[in-house]
Every structure is written in structure tokens, then in C-alpha cells.
């Protein structure tokens, strides 16, 4: 078996030349995080006469992943939002030198004594849902409110003009489907044509879009405090309604459209988002981003299935969405779109 612990110990020594007695008490892989190999590490060292023990998270690029992204996007997002008080882990090291662990990786603090709700659990939050729900939508509003230039992210991500956001996003995800589909997708293709025929208004502002803000991508503790918003690997600059519609996608709420993310009522969730983002939710624009996000989802699930089928990554977590999530998004799209097409005729 690969000696990640030994090699990572050497890396920590390299990053902390003044430290001694560096030891890894445990290193274990965490399930999920399909776009990166994620390991929980318990490390200890002695420095300036005092002993330190710290939990770390190591996120290493996989050979092949569900989402092909650059790891510095995610690292930079943590670096930008951590000082602002948004609950994200403290980023520690970003490493692109392949000599350490064969693939690029980054290291961040471990958020301990927390759990993530599974999007595939019918009731992931139980009695904590109201408390977590208020924070979930508030934090998303806070992300949307930030000026990407002011927090140093505009220079690290491709800028896009408000009127061009939708075209850029549709083109990107259509290209993924073009490249990775293993069978024709009549529903996704009809949806892409609809998106192009019915463009949304220009974005109200250019925001940092997390890209995968949803159930399963944040950690909460037993008191119901959200302690960390994770998985920023798809973050980009764009329309803040993209994040809102993705977070409210019925896939993340076991199909419950009225209680998005399985948390609180839709109306209250969106009221909180508006209050903390300072932005409005144009119904037609929101509908467009709902349809777009289902297409984006399909592109991701199709791509994951292809990676699994090709043997590039045999993690079961890549096969599952290709079956289940594709089915959910296909049905959502075909029902919603046929309504919209019919409404446009009347």
C-alpha cells in the first residue's frame, strides 16, 4: 500500500523546518469528495519547546474525478473567505510539486466533531433543520453579497460580464455532455435548446458562485451550528442566482420542492437569502437557472459515469450519481420544461 503517511510526514517537515518529532498518529481516507481524494490526518510535532497536536485534511487530486477542476480554485476560495468569518476551514498549504505525493494537493485544518448531512438520506437534519436552515441560506446570501474584486478572487478566476454569464455556463456544460455522453440524451438536448432560446436577463451583479452549495457539502455540529462550508472546487464568477437555484434543486431535498435542501420552507429560505445578499430573485431568471442547474447536474453525472465505465476511477461514488441523479434530473427537467413550453404557447 502507498505510504502516504510517511511521505506526508516528510512534507510537513519540509513546511515546518523548525519543528521536530513530527509524527502522523493516523491517516484515513474519507468517503465522498468525489473530485478529490480526501484524507483525515492526526499530526503532532514539537516546536519552540511545546508540543502541538493538530487535525488536518489532505485533499489530493485523484487520477480521475467526478469534477475536473484546478485545486487552486478551491484553495483560493478558502483563503478569501476564511478571514471574512464565513465558516470555512483554514487553508494551510497548496502544493503542486509532484515529488511529494505524485499529484497536487492542498492541506487545511480539520473541523472536528461535526458531520455532513447526506443528500441521499430522507431526513438528514432531524430537529436541527430549522436552525441549520437559517444559517444555510444566510451564508449563501453572504457569499453572493461579497465583491469578488474586494476579497481578492477576481484576479484568480476568469472575469465574465453580467450579460455573458449564461452563455459561458451553457457552453461549458454542453461541451461536457458532448464529450462524455455514452448514450444520446434527448431531455438534456431539449433543455439546452430551451436555455439558448430563452436567455435570462443579465446578472444583477457578478458574484463568487460556490458552484456546489448544497446538502452534503457543509459540516454541522450537534448543536446545529454550521462549522464549515466545503467543496469549493467548482467555484467561479457568475450570477448569484446560479448558486441559489443549485442549492434549491430538488435533488438535494429528496425531491421535496417546497423544503429546499431538506431544511426550511422555500419562501422563508429565499427571504433569508434576499436579506443577506441584498439581491432580488427575478422569477424568470430563477427559473432559467433552475433549468440550467439540472443540465449542469446531468453533465456532471454523465461525466462521472463515463469515468467509471472507462475504468479511470472505480470509486462507487462515481457510478451512483450516473444512475440515480441522472434519473432525478431527467424527470425534473422533462416535467418542468414541458410545462414551460406549454405555458409559452398559451
Amino acid at each position: 500500500m502507498e505510504d502516504i503517511a510517511g511521505r506526508f510526514t516528510a512534507y510537513l517537515q519540509h513546511k515546518m523546518p523548525d519543528a521536530s518529532n513530527i509524527a502522523i498518529a493516523s491517516l484515513s481516507r474519507i468517503h465522498g469528495g468525489a473530485s478529490r481524494e480526501t484524507y483525515r490526518v492526526r499530526a503532532s510535532w514539537t516546536k519552540d519547546g511545546s508540543e502541538t497536536e493538530r487535525g488536518l485534511i489532505l485533499r489530493r487530486d485523484p487520477v480521475s474525478s467526478l469534477i475536473e477542476t484546478e485545486r487552486d480554485l478551491e484553495y483560493n476560495a478558502y483563503r478569501a473567505f476564511h478571514p471574512l468569518g464565513l465558516p470555512v476551514p483554514e487553508p494551510l498549504y497548496l502544493e503542486t510539486d509532484l515529488s511529494w505525493l505524485d499529484r497536487p494537493f492542498f492541506v487545511m485544518e480539520e473541523i472536528r466533531d461535526c458531520s455532513a448531512g447526506s443528500a441521499f438520506n430522507p431526513d438528514p437534519y432531524g430537529a436541527l433543520a430549522p436552525k441549520i436552515g437559517e444559517q444555510f441560506w444566510r451564508h449563501l446570501g453572504s457569499i453572493a453579497k461579497q465583491d469578488p474584486r474586494a476579497i481578492g478572487l477576481a484576479g484568480t478566476m476568469e472575469w465574465v460580464e453580467p450579460a455573458d454569464v449564461w452563455k459561458k455556463e451553457v457552453a461549458a456544460w454542453e461541451a461536457v455532455i458532448d464529450e462524455d455522453e455514452m448514450e444520446p440524451q434527448p431531455i438534456a438536448r431539449a433543455a439546452i435548446r430551451w436555455l439558448k432560446r430563452n436567455p435570462p436577463p443579465p446578472a444583477q451583479k457578478i458574484s463568487v458562485v460556490h458552484g456546489d452549495y448544497r446538502t452534503g457539502n457543509f459540516l454541522f455540529d450537534v448543536q446545529g451550528e454550521i462549522r464549515a462550508i466545503l467543496d469549493w472546487e467548482m467555484c467561479h464568477l457568475g450570477d448569484p442566482l446560479e448558486d441559489l437555484a443549485w442549492a434549491a434543486d430538488p435533488l438535494w431535498a429528496f425531491g421535496n420542492y417546497d423544503r429546499p435542501a431538506g431544511l426550511i420552507a422555500r419562501e422563508e429560505a429565499f427571504r433569508i437569502w434576499r436579506a443577506h445578499s441584498g439581491l432580488e430573485i427575478d422569477p424568470a431568471a430563477f427559473t432559467w437557472w433552475e433549468i440550467f442547474n439540472a443540465v449542469k447536474g446531468l453533465a456532471i453525472w454523465i461525466s462521472a459515469g463515463k469515468e467509471f465505465a472507462a475504468g479511470n476511477n472505480l470509486d462507487p461514488v462515481l457510478a451512483f450519481p450516473s444512475w440515480y441523479c441522472t434519473d432525478v434530473h431527467d424527470r425534473f427537467l422533462v416535467n418542468r420544461l414541458s410545462e414551460l413550453v406549454e405555458r409559452a404557447r398559451s
Binding site: 441521499f120 431531455i187 434519473d327 414541458s338
Partner: peptide, 18 residues
């Protein structure tokens, strides 16, 4: 559209946990 709706509904995968 009716064909695609019916076909998608027939392919619905019941979630085992649900």
C-alpha cells in the same frame, strides 16, 4: 414531450432508503 415524460417516469429508480 409526452413520450419523454412517460419514458422518464417508467425509468424512475426508487431510492432504496426512501
Amino acid at each position: 414531450w409526452a413520450f419523454m415524460r412517460n419514458a422518464a417516469e417508467r425509468r424512475k429508480l426508487p431510492h432504496p432508503l426512501a
